Amino acid sequence: EVPFKVVAQFPYKSDYEDDLNFEKDQEIIVTSVEDAEWYFGEYQDSNGDVIEGIFPKSFVAVQG
């Protein structure tokens, strides 16, 4: 069931425009499960802007 919160276990950096880049310990709200390997989610950056994109499930852990 979406949405749910995950926390980055590792930093994720990608050159693909659709990917969500983040640092370790970033909290991310997952709004869609793309497939067995990928989530789609969002978070607010330090400027208060909402950043969204896809990212690999293996880089995050589900909270709770």
Rank of each mutant, 00 (worst) to 15 (best):
E34H: 15
G48R: 03
F40W: 11
K24H: 04
Y43I: 06
F55T: 00
F55L: 00
Q26Y: 03
F22A: 01
N47Y: 09
F22S: 00
F55P: 06
S58R: 13
W38S: 06
D15V: 10
A36M: 09
F40T: 05
K24W: 04
N47D: 06
V7D: 01
A61M: 12
V7P: 02
V62K: 11
F59H: 14
G41R: 02
Q44W: 07
D18M: 14
Y43Q: 00
E17H: 10
Y12S: 00
E1W: 12
N21S: 10
V62S: 08
V30H: 03
F4N: 03
E37V: 08
Y16A: 14
Y12G: 00
I51D: 02
I54Y: 15
E27K: 04
I28D: 00
A36L: 10
F40N: 04
D19M: 15
A61Y: 12
K5Y: 10
W38D: 00
V33L: 09
Y39S: 00
P56L: 04
P11G: 09
W38P: 01
E27W: 08
G64C: 12
V6I: 01
D49I: 13
G53H: 02
D15P: 13
Q63H: 11
V6G: 01
G48N: 05
V2W: 05
Y39R: 00
D18Q: 14
I29W: 14
E37F: 14
K13C: 12
V60D: 02
G41F: 05
F22P: 01
E42Y: 15
K5E: 05
A36C: 12
E52K: 15
P11E: 09
N47H: 10
F40Y: 13
F22H: 02
I29R: 07
N21C: 12
F59C: 14
E23K: 06
W38K: 06
S32D: 05
P3W: 07
W38C: 08
E23C: 09
S32F: 10
G41A: 02
D18K: 15
F4Q: 02
A61S: 13
K5W: 11
S46R: 12
K13F: 13
E23Y: 06
E42A: 09
A36K: 10
V60Q: 02
A8L: 04
F40V: 06
G64S: 11
T31W: 09
V30L: 04
V62C: 11
F59W: 06
Y43N: 02
L20I: 05
Y12R: 05
N47V: 06
Y16F: 12
Q63S: 12
G64P: 13
K57P: 09
Q9G: 05
I28Q: 00
I51E: 05
P3N: 05
F22T: 01
V33I: 14
A61R: 10
G41E: 00
K24D: 02
F59D: 04
T31L: 09
Q9F: 07
D49S: 11
P3V: 05
F4V: 01
G41N: 00
F40G: 05
S14W: 02
I29Q: 05
D49N: 14
G53P: 01
Y16T: 11
I51V: 14
E27S: 05
V62Q: 10
S58E: 10
A36P: 11
P56G: 03
E37A: 08
K57F: 08
E27C: 10
I54D: 04
F59S: 06
E52M: 14
K24T: 07
P3Y: 07
F55C: 04
Y43D: 00
P11L: 05
D49K: 14
Q63R: 09
D18L: 15
T31K: 08
P3S: 04
E23F: 06
Y39Q: 02
G48P: 00
D45S: 08
D19R: 15
S32V: 07
G64T: 13
E34P: 15
L20W: 03
K5F: 08
G64A: 12
E52H: 13
S46E: 13
Q26D: 02
Q9A: 08
Q26K: 04
Y39W: 15
Q26N: 00
P11R: 08
E27Q: 08
G53E: 01
V60F: 02
E1S: 12
I54L: 15
A36E: 13
Y16K: 15
F22E: 00
A36D: 14
E23T: 07
D49V: 14
E1K: 12
P56M: 03
V50Q: 07
E23V: 07
E52A: 15
V33C: 08
T31G: 02
V62E: 09
F59Y: 13
E17V: 11
V30E: 00
W38F: 11
E23P: 07
G64K: 09
V2I: 11
S32P: 01
F10C: 15
E52T: 15
N21D: 05
V50D: 03
Y39F: 09
Y43H: 00
Y43T: 04
L20T: 01
E42K: 11
E23W: 05
Y16Q: 13
I29A: 03
V33D: 08
E52W: 10
G53C: 05
I29Y: 08
A8P: 01
G48A: 03
K57R: 12
E37T: 09
E52L: 08
E42C: 15
A61F: 11
V33Q: 07
Q44A: 10
E52V: 13
S14A: 01
T31R: 07
I54M: 15
K5M: 10
I51W: 14
T31M: 08
I28M: 03
I29F: 10
F40I: 06
V30R: 01
E27I: 15
G41D: 00
L20A: 02
Q26F: 04
V62D: 07
F40P: 00
E52S: 15
Q9S: 09
K13L: 08
V2R: 05
N21K: 10
V50H: 10
E17P: 15
Q44H: 10
K57W: 06
F22Y: 01
K57S: 14
E27R: 03
Y39M: 03
P11I: 04
D35M: 08
V2H: 05
F55Q: 02
G41L: 04
V30C: 04
N47R: 08
K57L: 07
D45W: 04
I51N: 10
Y39I: 02
N21H: 11
A61I: 13
V2M: 07
S46C: 11
F10W: 11
E34I: 15
K5V: 13
F55E: 01
A61E: 12
D18Y: 15
V2P: 13
I54E: 05
Q26R: 03
V30Q: 02
G48M: 04
A8G: 03
K13D: 05
G64H: 12
V33H: 06
F59L: 13
E17W: 08
D15T: 12
W38Q: 05
V7A: 02
G48F: 05
F22D: 02
F10D: 04
P11S: 13
V60N: 00
F40A: 06
F22G: 01
F10M: 12
P11T: 11
